[in-house]
């Protein structure tokens, strides 16, 4: 009874809820489990079976027949066992893969709470493979950025990049996300360095990155260089439209802010209208707080009542 009272008194402190999407914990818990060294166990077992069979087989005729029978049964059991093991492993792997794909779809559909809950569940246990873990971590970075936890998002992106856990194309996307998160968190020096690195890698590969153009526009708007932001926008608009699809609305929003800073209200209004045609106002404000300053000063594009 006393013990029970002690336990209940101790409960609130001990059972403090784990923080939601705690990055260090999830990075640790999702590490794939170390493989057991089955080779030496299997080798030892095989040697024991061979020695036992040799001893039994040499002792008598009955022993020899028994060894033959047991060997056949053992071989059959091994084949069946391996097949069952393969089927179970493939099924489990496919299940985890489907979970990661579901998380990706939730992120794409902007169902952030559901995506966050699913990613927490996936990353709270050891992953089956490094590739599945990397995929889940990439989506975790996107969810954290959405919740404005930019330092946590940067930690996830750094982990993936520093340990070389993703392919070059995904690494480029992660570097863009990391640079954007740095800008949002006012780590301007780090962001500038990250952008310079991105520029170097894209130039080496001969790629014209629309994502990089968007990050540079944001950097220029944020640091009070609107003319540079507007120049990038005017030069890269076709590429931005092609690569970003509806997210070209982000570029229009940043251009509107740049034109506004340059006291060019006509162009600012035009870009603001186009930005709000493509993206909801709330979404633009959430992504770029600087764009919020335009609210009320410029007219948003009218939308049908059901779509507004």
């Amino acid at each position: 009874m006393q013990s029970s009272a002690f336990q209940s008194a101790a409960t609130p402190a001990d059972a403090a809820p784990a923080p939601f999407l705690d990055v260090p914990t999830l990075l640790e818990s999702s590490q794939p489990r170390a493989r057991l060294g089955w080779f030496w166990y299997a080798g030892g077992g095989f040697l024991a079976v061979v020695l036992g069979a040799a001893l039994l087989g040499n002792s008598s005729e009955i022993g020899r027949r028994l060894v033959e029978l047991l060997s056949a049964v053992l071989m059959l059991g091994l084949i069946v066992g391996m097949s069952v093991l393969t089927v179970v492993t493939v099924r489990n792997h496919r299940g985890e893969q489907q979970e990661v794909e579901a998380a990706a779809e939730l992120v794409q559909l902007r169902r952030w709470p559901q995506a966050a809950a699913l990613l927490e569940q996936i990353l709270s246990r050891p992953s089956r493979t490094g590739a599945l873990r990397s995929g889940a971590l990439m989506y975790l970075g996107a969810v954290l950025a959405r919740y404005h936890r930019f330092d946590d998002a940067i930690a996830v992106y750094d982990h993936l990049l520093e340990h070389d856990l993703v392919d070059p194309a995904s690494a480029h996307g992660l570097r863009l996300g990391r640079a954007m998160a740095m800008l949002r968190e006012d780590h301007l020096f780090d962001a500038d360095r990250a952008i310079a690195e991105l520029r170097r890698t894209t130039s080496d590969a001969g790629i014209d990155s629309a994502g990089l153009a968007l990050v540079e526009m944001y950097r220029d708007v944020k640091t009070g260089h609107p003319a540079e932001a507007a120049a990038i926008f005017e030069e890269k608009l076709p590429a931005l439209r092609e690569a970003l699809g509806h997210r070209v609305g982000d570029a229009y929003a940043l251009a509107a802010r740049a034109y506004d800073l340059m006291s060019r209200p006509g162009e600012a209004q035009d870009s603001y209208t186009k930005a709000t045609l493509l993206s909801p106002l709330m979404e633009l404000h959430r992504r770029y707080p600087e764009v919020e300053k335009l609210y009320g000063r410029y007219q948003a594009a009218p939308a049908p009542p059901e779509a507004a």
Binding site: G245, L277, A301, P304, P305, A307
Partner: peptide, 17 residues
């Protein structure tokens, strides 16, 4: 007969292609 939707969607399409 939904001109409001038609106008809104057409303008969006023009911005994308």
């Amino acid at each position: 007969g939904r001109e409001d939707w038609s106008d809104w969607l057409r303008r969006r399409a023009e911005l994308l292609a």
